[in-house]
Design a protein around this nucleic acid. Structure first.
Lengths: 187, 187
DNA sequence: CGCCAATTGTACTGATCAGTACATTGTGTA
DNA sequence: TACACAATGTACTGATCAGTACAATTGGCG
């Protein structure tokens, strides 16, 4: 049944929003059923492993999205500048210009960082490495490229923290353009 | 009794470590009693308001530490450069060169941001504002100072996320020196 | 229609949660 | 020593937790 796949992936999108809002520990089964309108029956049918499997599926979904929209372009695009521009666009749209928070970043700060170590570490490791390689292709020196990629990936995460805490999404947008500019200027 | 105050403040230090490790939702009473060696009797004696009051006390303690060691110097030190140097030193020592995470930042990304809105927002708002004012005193233009202060405070938070997720404290140290240098160069 | 498997609602389970009550212990002071 | 009160351990409470079992329902296909 094709329907199964599509409904499960719908569920993952809804679950992602719940986890983003409540964190892993804060996401109780009753919160999930309330917010996704899915009963326990459906949830455990699609995710027999329970909450843990749900979170894993969500992280996988997020990883896949970034792989397609950010990491792969950074690795494969002929035009490095275009790939970087694409990255900033994708990031801005994914985080809704600062209205949305990064689940992987939130997991990184908590105990979830151990439970989902591979996925959390993989996400950031890939991002930094692919951006670094792209910057090298764009003409940066290696050490400079490493520093810049850490600065940008970290800068994005920090901007999300700041924008959320101050309730000023504009802080995120400003940071993003600053980081963008930084990659252009430094060369 | 003077002893009361001192024991309560000891408890706050221990609690801070627990909340940093497990997050707010993940910090159950049983985790607290296990990690702090304090029984429920003591905990509810010092914090009749329960977990919420404990977290508030911890946030207050953190806020006080940063007020004394970071914010006040930024506001009051005659020598702006010295105040900024002091800030970086304090930050590096507080976050144990990237081995420790920022509880306020973690709260900012989760639902705790609403529950402890005042303390979380106050922390970041004060930090950015005081750093900005200090940068103006150091000779920066106003808009430039605002951008730089957001960049630095956000950059620190992002560096913590990155360092933690990659399990590479060195990432934090590198970021810190980069940010430090940035405040010197730009002028 | 009628069958079968996918899907879902619901009523359970035992464990654990935050918080309370209260008796017991420790300690400074008179 | 004796008293008063701070500090603490322990045994409860009802609520909620994740997860299970299973019967009822659905929807596609012959």
């Amino acid at each position: 049944m094709a329907r199964l796949v599509s409904e499960r992936s719908d569920a993952i999108m809804a679950l992602a929003e719940v986890f983003r809002t409540h964190g892993f520990e804060g996401t109780t089964l009753s919160v999930i059923t309330a917010q996704t309108k899915m009963g326990k029956g459906s949830l455990y049918h699609f995710f027999p492993g329970g909450k843990e499997e749900m979170a894993e599926a969500v992280l996988e979904e997020i990883g896949g999205w970034f792989e397609n929209r950010v990491f792969k372009p950074l690795r494969e695009d002929r035009n490095a500048d275009a790939a970087i521009a694409k990255m900033f666009e994708a990031v801005d749209s994914y985080f809704r210009s600062g209205h949305r928070v990064c689940l992987v970043g939130a997991f990184a700060l908590g105990r979830e960082c151990e439970r989902f170590e591979d996925q959390v570490r993989g996400y950031f490791k890939t991002w930094v490495a692919d951006l670094e390689a792209c910057l090298v292709r764009a003409g940066h020196k290696h050490i400079e490229a490493r520093d810049l990629s850490e600065e940008v990936v970290g800068g994005i995460q920090g901007a999300l923290v700041l924008a959320r805490s101050l309730d000023q999404p504009a802080v995120f947008s400003r940071s993003l353009s600053r980081l963008k500019q930084r990659l252009e200027v430094k060369r």
